[in-house]
């Protein structure tokens, strides 16, 4: 079980301070697929950076099975980081390494020998449907294929949480559908806990069980996707759903 408790983050800017995350709480049961949706500037990116341990929140805790990741000592940081697999917007593949080496990269960082992970990498390549592309370089792949490599790479360390940042924002409609189908398959096969940060409704609708709406650094509404989308309580949610026009 993954728990985000009382997470707050303030940024100092030229015009004073900006409260990017305001006492945010979330519980993810193992194997859940949850979407976080909000407009730009709502705090999605800050939340992602805190969860991927790139940004230290001012307050709060991120715990996985009772272990607070934010209290990690430097020498344990690597193990903590490998509990969370991140797929960044724009995938960030290593351009001078091929598909196989990109996916195996997090494991080579641990100094693992190739014979120990070779089978796992082959399984991951099969899982994301890139058989035959092992030796290709990112520049030879389409946008959708690159995103598949990034997902396989994030899964390489068998993380407790798979975090996806706007995974479909750079993809066309057809590639988006294929990727969402893939996410559903991965979820069914691996039972991974998945958190998707997005501004696209159809992503949440197609793959998530639960949805959280974020605005001004606060979680303003959350629940089962069917409930929230059918009976939105908050005005921002209705705006996002297109049930109400911006005044």
């Amino acid at each position: 079980m993954i728990e985000i408790k009382g997470l707050s983050k303030t940024f100092k800017t030229a015009n004073g301070s900006l409260l990017a995350l305001d006492n945010v709480n979330l519980r993810l049961e193992a194997g859940e697929m949850v979407g976080i949706i909000g407009m730009s500037g709502a705090g999605k990116t800050t939340l992602l950076r805190c969860l991927s341990l790139l940004e230290k929140p001012d307050e709060g805790a991120i715990t996985i099975d009772g272990l607070n990741l934010l209290e990690a000592r430097d020498d344990r940081m690597r193990d903590y980081r490998q509990k969370i697999g991140v797929v960044f917007q724009g995938n960030q593949l290593l351009k001078q390494r091929n598909v196989y080496d990109n996916i195996a990269f997090p494991l080579t960082l641990k100094g693992e020998a190739k014979q120990n992970y070779d089978e796992r990498i082959k399984r991951l390549i099969e899982l994301v449907g890139l058989q035959g592309k092992e030796g290709s370089y990112p520049s030879q792949l389409s946008g959708g294929q690159k995103q598949r490599v990034a997902i396989a790479r994030a899964l390489a360390t068998e993380p407790d949480l798979l975090l996806l940042d706007e995974p479909t924002s750079a993809l066309d409609a057809i590639t988006t559908r294929a990727l969402l189908t893939l996410l559903n398959e991965i979820h069914a096969k691996t039972q991974a806990t998945i958190l998707i940060i997005t501004h696209e409704l159809n992503v949440v609708e197609r793959v998530c069980e639960k949805v959280v709406v974020i605005e001004d650094g606060k979680f303003i509404e959350e629940g089962k996707v069917a409930d929230v989308f059918k009976h939105p309580k908050h005005r921002t949610t209705r705006l996002l759903l297109g049930l109400e026009e911006h005044a």
């Binding site: 790139l54 724009g90 960030q92 390494r97 960082l109 790479r153």
Partner: peptide, 24 residues
């Protein structure tokens, strides 16, 4: 951004220099 993504994979600074900066 690529370097940040490698940090989230648990890369040490030395690994970032040798395996990412030099290689890329």
């Amino acid at each position: 951004d690529m370097i940040e993504s490698v940090i989230t994979m648990g890369a040490s600074k030395l690994q970032i220099v040798t395996k990412v900066l030099f290689r890329e």
